[in-house]
Amino acid sequence: MIVPLNHILLLSGLLFSLGMFCTLARRNLIMMLLGIEIMLNAAAVAFVGASLHWQQMEGQAIVIFILAVAATEVTIGLAAILVVYRRTDSVDPDMDAALWEKGGSR
């Protein structure tokens, strides 16, 4: 006998809120992407716990797709961050220049 499902869900919720805080509060595009990874991982924990609770393998199958989505998201996200960095020399999400056309004025 191991723990009840609710303890796993509470752990998952705590991880999710940590990732959400990282995404919302950090002033760095790379750390924001890292926060999204933490949130996806928290969702995976919840799915595996639910899979054990109902003795179904659906939950574990979903985790495979979460992994695929996480890999896709981090690849595209890091490439986009690299483009922004080349253009503005900064990974600050509060940047001024990257959101405007080159040579444009506010």
Binding site: I2, V3, P4, Q55
Partner: peptide, 8 residues
Amino acid sequence: GWAPMPAA
């Protein structure tokens, strides 16, 4: 959800 789950 408060009942402990059997290991599997």
